[in-house]
Nucleic acid binder design. Structure first.
Length: 974
RNA sequence: GCAGGGGUGGCGGAGUAAGGCUAAUCGCGCUCGCCUUAAGAGCGAGUGUCACUCCGUGACACGCGGGUUCAAAUCCCGCCCCCUGCGCCA
């Protein structure tokens, strides 16, 4: 490990000193611009992050070796509220967070105090993350680094938003958000206790009337209004008589504040206990039916209005509650309810659904054996009824004009109609309440007024996004439909908040542009960040005109230079650099960013830039699991990246996160995988050191090589081709497997095959040459994945320069030797057959005889192959042709048996193999087997003899020779 | 619910685009052997299930059920299960 560590440090320093990853416009080379979503510095990175970033780095390194002028930059995303929230929690001495910081992230205790300043915290993690990126060996051009709170970047974002604004892509409106009434802030998932995402739903409030008062019953199923049999109030809870936007409402006391946050004017007139209204009648606005108000403990006055309409036919809660009220004589007495009136209430059926009776709620309650209102199974029962009714249910006749509609359709129609008739209204509520803010307060829904939105719902804009997507390469391709769907779904996205770090909206400085909106086209900023730093360009000089010129080519450099005081030449250089590297060639990210960031990137590019500068490729990848389990702080299975690097080494970590899964799947990291990768890397080193001891000639003539040498070199070509193909679609797992394991397998076979060849200087030279070829190719194909060890070996074996800047090997068709490959697979098959026979007969072989097929068989075989090329082979036809050949005619009976068998075999053969065999024509099988004799002798520890089937002198006591077929010699063992 | 991805051996996972070469590349694990003072590493061999007349043979096996075909893990239809995303959160 020490050894790997030293190598890593050495090469990271050399790369930095030689500035080899600093990319400048170079007209001599094609450019390639790769970026990966910049990290958010609110914690150090862990092994999981390494996947996305390593993939991007491997991509960058690969393209660099393919001869491109690759730009791979990095920046840091300070925008947003999470850092603020964390900082505040630290200030509040949040124990869990402090524990995480100390135990998981290994942050020195004494530094924690600084972190009550959010900016200090962000800066700390920024350096922490950057350190990790250097230690893992990413080929980043650090000259272009920036943060999203740099004033120059703020100018860039202002410029972008002005463009969006002018294009009509910015709208304003009101919007419900999760809200902490104590903190006075919107709450997202990271603000809540237990990281719960607040789910906002819209309840329909149906206005039941009683004596001039409105009971606004809250429901998520307005279509069931026709099945209401009564109203539920919680008898023990407090209700308020209040004026709500001018109407007299009876609502739970808890709902008063909520309605206020939902922009309603509420004045409380009087407070009652729920029981006050029990036994009174109210009128259903949809049916005009007079219904009783009854008591129910299950009514949660904290949910919506605390007034519930009862639909026992379709709501399990209502069904159970009604049954209880009916049976409970003391309850009836307590509230002075007439038992006749109550008992006459029967569930109404308004929805017909296959597989259920008229009262689906009753069916499910009975099935689940639910007895009382507090039974937790009621939740499941409700879900089951709803699921079936929503998808398969139809409205019955008593639903009036909605008769025959599906529940899904009726739900919306009823709601809209009731609202427009003034019989209902709506109210937002949290569906997964209670959701608690980290401060402990229960969250509510607030309508955030005059919020700014980016209008991703704009149809013309959607069309542009689709157009970009169509031209773009999506890796993996399976994700394309996902993007298409998302472009279709997206609508207005709130783009600014009142708190957090970032850029202020240029036309309304109270708002700060939120993080998913200020990170959509920043790849363009990398191209000028270098100049901004180099020339210390202040934000004031980055006027809208400057940026218009640099990014859109509007105006002249002289004019702008004059106005801004910027150097005209610098302006032109910036413009030139932007045009050189743009458009973006590849964008990398984890695939959870597809529904937001990545699609936003597409949208914004089409809004700001001309079509020629739209992004060309997006590649996304899955997560990293830790020994099969999800990584999470609560499982305590997070390995911070730098800790992992220190423990296992950079190259092994890179391999571990990339070699265990294809892009879409989750990779599985574990110490044992990392360890085996480390062993693999060390073995490569040892192998190289052995080759280093070998002497080999500069050039080796083809002729002096034996078939097995040519076979190895031919296989090497095949592996180059496969690895390159895999890399071109970023199938890194496949590529690593090809380079590391498949190549290795052939190499091991090769070593076995040559182990017994007679030693002489020429042979040794050839072997050394072949070994060296393998090492050379393997190193260059591994360099993107394990750059450190590859650089080290590269230098040790005396190669010039950095392997990182060397060429990726190219497939050389001329080195492919089909004959050698076919000969070798003959040997491999033969070895396997021999082995099977030995096992089957349990003979300890002393003598093994091989009989290669007679020449007439080969002749017939080739004929059949020839025929198979042009479609199906008809046995009778081919037999006629055989009959015309003298040497075949004299043994027609044998030929017939042989041919019928071969026709079958050939038809099952892959096209490629048939072509190869035809190309080779007749292989001299006897010679092939003779060549492998010493190997076979060693392999089976027996005497080996090779005969031709037609050899009169052959030793063949069991007459096995007859069963030989081309490419499959007969075997006799004794 | 909607959308996307997936379900293959003890495990991870190839194979599915172009149906037959293939019941399974490769890795891990496990068993046996070699090497070694020992362990590890390395090397070699074996390793789907069941049944039987158990050096062999047969049947069954790629989520479940149908279908197309001489032939299906692969194509078609229906169903079940798992994972991910669904917005103000980076």
């Amino acid at each position: 490990m020490e050894f790997l560590k030293k190598i890593e440090e050495k090469w990271q320093k050399r790369w930095e000193d030689a500035k080899i990853f600093e990319a400048n416009p170079d007209p001599k080379k094609p450019k390639y611009f790769v970026t990966v979503a910049y990290p958010y510095p609110n914690s150090p990175q862990h092994i999981g992050h390494a996947r996305t970033y390593s993939l991007a780095d491997v991509h960058a390194r690969y393209m660099r070796m393919r001869g491109y002028n690759v730009l791979f930059p990095m920046a840091f995303h300070y925008t947003g509220t999470p850092v603020l929230a964390m900082s505040k929690r630290l200030a509040d001495k949040d124990k869990d967070l402090i524990d995480d910081f100390i135990n998981v992230y290994k942050i020195p205790k004494e530094r924690l105090n600084e972190f009550t300043d959010p900016l200090a915290m962000a800066k700390y993690f920024h350096q922490e993350i950057k350190g990790g990126m250097k230690e893992i060996g990413y080929s980043i051009d650090w000259r272009r680094e920036f943060t999203t709170i740099d004033p120059q970047y703020n100018r860039f974002i202002e410029w972008q938003f002005q463009k969006l604004y002018k294009a009509g892509y910015i709208t304003r409106g009101s919007h419900p958000v999760g809200w902490c009434p104590k903190d006075g802030n919107p709450v997202g998932q990271h603000d809540t206790a237990g990281d719960v995402e607040p789910e906002i739903g819209e309840f329909t409030l149906i206005k039941f009337r009683h004596n001039g008062y409105i009971f606004p019953a809250a429901t998520l199923r307005p279509e069931t209004v026709f099945g209401v049999t009564n109203i539920w109030l919680n008898p023990e809870a407090k209700y308020a008589k209040a004026t709500v936007n001018g109407e007299a409402w009876i609502i739970s006391q808890e709902s008063v504040e909520k309605l206020k946050h939902l922009t309603r004017k509420v004045t409380v007139l009087e407070v009652f206990e729920g029981k006050t209204f029990i036994g009174k009648y109210a009128e259903n606005p949809a049916t005009m039916a007079k219904i009783l108000i009854l008591p129910a403990d299950f009514v949660d006055t904290k949910n919506a209005t605390g007034v519930v309409m009862s639909v026992p036919g379709h709501a399990p809660y209502d069904y159970v509650a009604l049954e209880i009220v009916k049976k409970d004589a003391s309850l009836l007495k307590e509230y002075g309810l007439s038992s006749e009136a109550v008992n006459s209430i029967n569930a109404l059926s308004v929805i017909e659904v296959a597989g259920y009776s008229a009262v689906p709620a009753g069916d499910v309650v009975k099935k689940m054996n639910i007895k009382d209102q507090s039974d937790s199974k009621l939740e499941d029962a409700t879900k089951e009824v709803y699921r079936h009714e929503f998808h398969n249910g139809k409205m019955r006749q008593n639903a009036g004009k909605y008769f025959g509609l599906s529940v899904a359709e009726a739900k919306d129609k009823v709601k809209q109609d009731l609202i427009s008739e003034g019989k209902a209204t709506t109210m937002y509520e949290l569906l997964n309440r209670p959701v608690r803010c980290r401060c402990g307060t229960e969250c509510i829904v607030k309508i955030f007024q005059d919020q700014w939105f980016i209008d991703y719902g704009n149809p013309a804009w959607k069309a542009l996004a689709h157009k970009n997507l169509e031209k773009m390469e999506i890796i993996p391709e399976e994700m394309r439909t996902e993007y298409n769907n998302i472009i279709d779904w997206l609508h207005e996205k709130a783009c600014a908040r009142k708190s957090g770090m970032g850029t202020r909206l240029p036309w309304d400085k109270d708002w700060i542009i939120e993080s998913l909106s200020d990170s959509t086209i920043y790849m363009a900023y990398y191209t000028i960040a270098k100049h901004i730093k180099e020339h210390k360009i202040p934000p004031e000089q980055l006027t809208d005109e400057t940026l218009d010129y640099v990014f859109l080519g509007i105006g002249s450099s002289e004019e702008i230079a004059e106005k801004t005081g910027l150097d005209a030449e610098t302006l032109e250089k910036m413009r030139g650099e932007f045009l050189h590297f743009y458009p973006l060639d590849s964008r990398h990210s984890a695939h959870e960013l597809i529904p937001n960031h990545l699609t936003f990137m597409i949208f914004n590019h089409t809004a700001i830039f001309p079509e020629s500068l739209w992004p060309r490729q997006i590649a996304t990848n899955g997560h990293v699991l830790m020994e099969g389990a999800k990584m999470s702080k609560s499982f305590g299975n997070i390995i911070p990246l730098r800790e992992g690097l220190a423990k296992y080494g950079a190259d092994p970590v890179r391999l571990s996160v990339l070699a265990t899964a294809e892009l879409l799947q989750d990779a599985d990291f574990s110490p044992s995988v990392a360890k085996s990768m480390r062993d693999r890397v060390e073995r490569l080193y040892k192998f190289a050191m052995e080759i280093l001891k070998m002497r080999y000639p500069e050039k080796v003539s083809e002729k002096s090589m034996t078939a097995i040498d040519r076979w190895m070199l031919s296989r090497l070509q095949e592996h180059i081709r496969n690895a390159t193909r895999s890399m071109d679609r970023l199938a890194v797992r496949k590529a690593i497997h090809t380079v590391l394991y498949e190549l290795e397998q052939d190499f091991q076979w090769y070593q076995k095959r040559i182990a017994n060849q007679k030693a002489n200087a020429a042979k040794e030279g050839i072997t050394a040459y072949v070994f060296n070829q393998i090492l050379d190719v393997q190193l260059r194909m591994l360099a993107p994945f394990t750059p450190h060890i590859c650089e080290e070996i590269w230098t040790l074996i005396g190669r010039e320069g950095f392997i990182s800047l060397n060429a990726w090997p190219t497939h050389d068709e001329s080195k492919t030797d089909i004959e050698a490959e076919e000969s070798e697979s003959l040997i491999m098959d033969m070895v396997e057959d021999t082995q099977n026979i030995i096992r089957a007969t349990s003979i300890a072989p002393r003598k093994i005889c091989y009989y290669v097929a007679a020449s007439w068989k080969t002749k017939a075989y080739l004929k059949i192959l020839e025929k198979a090329k042009s479609g199906e082979v008809k046995l009778n036809e081919i037999m006629k042709e055989f009959a015309a050949e003298g040497d075949l005619k004299k043994r027609m009976k044998e030929v017939a048996t042989f041919a019928s068998k071969m026709v079958k075999d050939v038809s099952k053969m892959p096209e490629k193999r048939r072509e190869n065999m035809l190309m080779i024509k007749a292989l001299d099988e006897k010679e092939v087997v003779e060549d492998a004799k010493s190997f076979l002798m060693q392999r089976f520890n027996a005497q080996i003899t090779v005969y031709n089937e037609e050899d009169e002198e052959r030793y063949d006591p069991k007459n096995k020779a007859a069963v030989s077929v081309p490419y499959r010699p007969a075997i006799y063992i004794e």
